[in-house]
């Protein structure tokens, strides 16, 4: 078996505070193979976004963030990489889709300008005209019918759903090996969100990127992901294939989570489960066939 595209082992994260370090991740292990769609679900504050931000290298160089463990991506040690080498990966080998599309786009530059900058990450000396042509093509792929009008617009002139499509097109324009989707489009209304998520799923299929899909929306996770990790307070509590997880949830926290969903409209997770239980701290349940592979040689502790 070849090594996974992304492999995280025993990842720990603490933030310095004036009262001493506050632990946020307590040893997370997670892997994604090439082209695979993996979901990470859990309540608010459980550590989903910080995990994504470590993978994207946005936390490593920040003062006050203490990180230990192993993160390997495509044969590179992401915790030991220089800032410069990491920057070369971003926007090319990996990219990201954000929660609120309109605020993720710069308000004072046109979509065309921003798109050109993104394309320039993979194609160093791309000409203005060529960038525009490719951007229009990419927008066409996310079913934007007037790409020229959209390219000439500023984000505030477009609807949230339109901006979300633009972001998706940007994220996949350079055919990244890994896409980090941190609650994409949660800021949008439910039907728009649903439509753009399906668009994203189709495009990912086409490009063949692997995805770490962070979501509150269990309905979408069920439809979309190959495997699911459930995270609770900085620990993975259950890891299973999607069908297995939804048909046979074994960890008490996962069960409570799934039981809570029908009560909430739109299949979204509640921000936190109202009841907590000591049982939630039970050891992780790893379903058969979902064991973490050994770390690649040279990276083991």
């Amino acid at each position: 078996m070849t090594a996974p595209l992304l492999q995280i082992a025993d990842l720990r994260l603490a933030f310095d505070s004036w009262r001493g370090p506050v632990e946020v991740l307590h040893g997370i292990s997670l892997n994604i193979r090439r082209g695979e769609k993996v979901a990470l679900v859990g309540e608010s504050g459980s550590g989903k976004s910080v995990t994504a931000r470590i993978i994207a290298g946005l936390l490593q160089y920040q003062r006050g963030a203490r990180i230990s463990g192993h993160v390997a991506f495509d044969g590179k040690d992401l915790l030991g990489l220089s800032e410069r080498a990491f920057r070369d990966l971003r926007g090319t080998a990996m990219s990201m889709v954000f929660q609120d599309p309109t605020s993720a786009l710069n308000p004072v530059f046109t979509i065309a300008d921003q798109f050109r900058e993104v394309l320039g990450r993979a194609h160093k000396d791309i000409s203005r005209a060529e960038a525009r042509r490719r951007a229009a093509e990419a927008l066409d792929h996310v079913l934007i019918h007037e790409p020229e009008r959209v390219l000439a617009s500023y984000p505030f002139q477009l609807s949230g759903g339109m901006n979300q499509r633009v972001l998706i097109a940007m994220a996949l324009a350079n055919q990244p090996a890994l896409l980090l989707a941190d609650e994409p489009g949660t800021a949008l209304d439910v039907t728009v969100q649903d439509r753009t998520l399906h668009l994203m799923a189709d495009l990912i299929e086409e490009v063949g990127s692997a995805v770490l899909f962070i979501s509150h929306n269990l309905g979408v996770v069920r439809e979309f992901a190959d495997r699911v990790y459930v995270i609770y307070r900085g620990r993975i509590v259950e890891h299973a294939g999607t069908d297995a997880l939804f048909h046979d949830p074994r960890h008490p926290y996962t069960r409570a989570l799934l039981a809570a969903v029908p009560k909430i409209s739109g299949e979204g997770l509640p921000d936190t489960l109202v009841e907590t239980s000591d049982a939630f701290d039970a050891p992780a349940v790893i379903h058969d066939g979902c064991e973490e592979p050994p770390l690649p040689a040279g990276m083991a502790a």
Partner: peptide, 29 residues
């Protein structure tokens, strides 16, 4: 602290370009 600067970082725009263009221009307003 705005999401669009984090986005620029997540897409690997250089620090100098972010400082002198993507963060500066909205900040000047």
């Amino acid at each position: 602290d705005k999401p669009y600067v984090e986005m620029a970082q997540a897409y690997g725009f250089s620090d100098r370009r972010i400082a002198s263009k993507y963060a500066l221009r909205p900040a000047m307003i």
